[in-house]
Write a protein that binds this DNA or RNA. Structure first.
Lengths: 225, 225
DNA sequence: ACCTGAACACCGTTCAAGT
DNA sequence: ACCTGAACACCGTTCAAGT
């Protein structure tokens, strides 16, 4: 809103929101969230750190814009062909996970912000819309949105943390393996193969299925028009 | 393991893991995760920042120990009286959420670490145990653990973020309200009361119920012994 | 053995001043 | 109008040196 804008007066700006956002996402993918500093981003743009503050009020503001950008197009996953409400919801949740996975530390960026731009609201509206049109009560539809989103973010946060732990410090599974094999955790020992599995897609689908199944139990058939 | 220990030789130590952890959790509750720095913690212990590194290899190590300590006693929630598997699972999930809520930014601390100590593994073993003893397949039991934990962490992360947004910057609901009332999101407008509700317990229980309901659909009755 | 003091290599953010 | 330069008030971490 109060960003520098319109008439090409003075020198042509080296910076602008869109280009900066693109560079920030590139930097994120290359080096991860911890290495994404205002100084390094400024460097990548050939500018001093202070200059960024003409386009983003704070670093938090930048991260929120990045989160918003990550969700672009995700709402469209509901429009995929036909399919009943459960298929459309599944498509939306999968699209959200994939959007988060598309960038290194994507889930951490998203979880750390409160994006309320068009792509996030569009996604939410599409999600709630699928349920309302299927005959779910308003209350259930809104709560289902939060539940699926919180699950998806929680899962992907873990998934990306596990991926990073794999390369870098491969003690991931072995720490668990050792602690468990030691004795005292009979049920974890018995399920170790699944606990240390890296089939994150399978795991995500399992939980998503549980949620959809739970919703099905609450489903009243749509009223005829 | 290599921490200073046992024989009371030399000067009595002003620091030790337990006391430092307690102080760190107090500081967390008073000021939040962003204000929990090694220097401020050292200050609260009457010591220089460098001294902390004799007890915690890194700040990440400290945070992991804090996460582990938060989960102490949560596994015992499965032992509550009788109740079938679904009641016991519900009790475990509720206990985890409450343990995270017990400290400011508790979910953020937990999500940012990979605690694999006795309280976390004990919780996991209890959870998987309830399902295995109820007749669930090992694979399903392990996946259900991750699903419920990821949901619980995801939900509580959001819940604590929303709580902080309320006091401090009460634009939380109003930003959403404005964006939604503006037009383009018919389904969000229709469900605004639920979307801006602060009944986080109700929301958590809704999602948890969906998961339990989903698990029920997968449930094979336990084999007779 | 335990802690201090001081340093190293950084951070986010602000703001007068230049062009 | 847009950016620089320089500062302010911090960070996590290391390590010789003191006691």
């Amino acid at each position: 809103m109060s960003s520098p804008s319109s008439p090409a007066r003075g020198r042509p700006a080296r910076l602008d929101r869109t280009r900066t956002l693109r560079t920030a996402l590139d930097l994120l993918d290359q080096s991860g969230l911890d290495a994404l500093t205002m100084r390094r981003l400024a460097d990548a743009m050939g500018v001093q750190a202070g200059a960024l503050y003409r386009y983003f009020a704070t670093k938090q503001d930048l991260l929120t814009a990045m989160a918003e950008r990550m969700m672009e197009g995700v709402a469209e996953a509901a429009a995929t062909d036909g399919g009943d409400w459960s298929e459309r919801l599944t498509a939306l949740a999968r699209a959200e996970r994939e959007a988060l996975l598309a960038h290194r530390d994507g889930a951490r960026v998203f979880a750390g912000t409160h994006a309320t731009g068009a792509s996030v609201l569009g996604f939410a509206d599409a999600f709630v819309g699928v349920l309302r049109e299927a005959g779910f009560a308003d209350d259930a539809a809104a709560r289902a949105l939060y539940t699926v989103v919180n699950y998806t973010v929680g899962h992907t946060l873990e998934e990306q943390a596990a991926l990073q732990a794999q390369d870098g410090a491969p003690e991931d599974a072995s720490v668990l393996r050792d602690a468990v094999t030691a004795g005292t955790y009979p049920h974890l020992s018995a399920t170790l193969p699944t606990l240390t599995s890296t089939d994150f897609t399978g795991l995500f689908e399992f939980g998503l299925d549980l949620l959809i199944e739970g919703l099905r139990a609450r489903h009243a058939p749509p009223a005829r028009e």
